[in-house]
Structures are given as structure tokens and as C-alpha cells.
Design a protein around this nucleic acid. Sequence first.
DNA 1: GAAGCGTGGGC
DNA 2: TGCCCAAGCTT
Length: 282
Amino acid sequence: MLTWYDANKRVLPWREAGAGAWAVMVSEFMLQQTPVNRVLPAYQRWLERWPTPADLAAEAPGEAVRAWDRLGYPRRALRLHAAAQAIVERHGGEVPDDHEALLALPGVGTYTAAAIASFAFGQRHAVVDTNVRRVLARSLTGVAQPAVSPTAADQRLAVSALPEDEPTAARWAVASMELGALVCTARTPNCADCPIRSHCAWVLAGSPPYDGPPRRGQTYEGTDRQARGRLLAVLRAATAPVPKPTLDAAWPHAAQRERALDGLVSDGLVEPLANGHYRLPG
DNA sequence: GAAGCGTGGGC
DNA sequence: TGCCCAAGCTT
């Protein structure tokens, strides 16, 4: 798998030599639930504008929300901004290399802390994302898909599979994730090109189909989530505070619109002004 | 532990 | 055409 990775890895800006821990951190925030191809343009603009945590920390949080563009889940932008401020206050403006310190930052959970420590600092951590969970479910457990949500068993399995040697563990982490992203994919895995197919428990079992409980599809049309997205899109595009009637026009269902707007305000994504106008948080 | 949280692309 | 999926985190 390590050899396969060296020959087949994608060229990505946050993987370039000297990209730095901040670049890795920004990419990890953006890649939480958003595909690589959609992240790339926003990532490039982001690092040009805010090349260090201090640069971002000095901005209004609303600017982070605006620059987040249409990556989705805009609370991630607020958390990245808050994390940058915490890095300035607690770590002298440098992304910490300590797993515990990373985990304490806003928006950084188990996966992201391990990813930054491993990808940026070469440490030995189990980096368990949806790709790795799928690779391990197939190759070691022998089932078509991992559990619906991450489990303690997934984490234990990933730890048990991790090479002992630190630099090898770091290479293994990124390689296993890339294998899941490029070859051992969710829908139609390309087993013919897989470097571990001769060891894969799922392939050796005859590639049995998934037989677990049905996976809940995520509805979107007509949801509060969609309403929030519409309202925030209006505010992102505006250069001045927006009068309420303009927001009203963005979502016809009044009760749902007000609920969504209240939610955005309580999340800190929208700031209501005294004159009844609204804007991204200053 | 479940629910809430965006957006768009691919099959 | 829908449906599934995408480097999760927080409450």
C-alpha cells in the first residue's frame, strides 16, 4: 500500500513539501464532509488571504463565513476562525503539534487532531475517517461497508493495524486514506487496481454485498437546513447590511424562515443590527 | 447516542 | 430522475 501510494497519490497543495501545519489544518477543516475538488479553489484563496493563523484571527468572523463560499456547513468557518484565535492566544500563533492541544481547539475532533499531528508533524496516530473505516471494514473485517457511524471497534482496529515505527505509521495513515478515496470507494470499488486485493478479507470472501440495516438518506429539499443556506447566501453576497424584506424574499415559508434565521443568529453566523437589518458577524 | 448541520457531483 | 455520497464536529 505504501508503494502504491508513492506511485498513485494525488498532487494536492496541502501535501506539498513545506506547505506547513496551517495549510494542513485549513484543508482538514474544509474537507470535513466536502469533496476535494470543491475544496481546492476556496482553499487557494483562503491561504493567499490568510497565510498564518494570526492573519485570520485579526479578521471579523463574518469574513471567514464569506470566504467559506459554498463549501457547506458554514459553522466550520466560524470554528476555524475561533481556532485561529485560540492558536494566537494559547500557542504563540503556531499550530500546536501536540494531539491534546489540537483536540482542545474549536472544530477539531478526534479525526482532525490525528490528521494534523500525522500529516503535518509526522507523528504516529490512528487517522480514522470514512475512507479508512471502509478500507479496514473490507480488508480486515471482510464486510462491504463499515458501521453507519464510527465505533470504538473501528478505532481499535485502526490502532491495531498501525505500523509501530513513527514515520512508517504516518505514511500508512495517508496511504490508507488515499486508497479509500481512489480505489476502495464506497459505490464501485476498483478492486482490479487495488494493491492489497490478494490480502483483502472481503475479496477473499467473494465480495459479499452489504447486508446491514438500510442507510438513512439525507433529505434536503424544503428543510430548515436549506432555508439557512438560502438566507446565508443572501448575506454572503451583500456588501452592506441587508434589510429584513430582502431576507424574507429568499424563503417564502414564514415560520420556517424565522426559525432558520433565529438559528443562524444563535449559531453566530448572522448578526442582527438595531435598525432591523442583518449582516455577517462583525 | 441520535440529531442537526450545506452543497453539489456522479451514477 | 432520484439517490447516494463526501478527509466530521457539537450538543
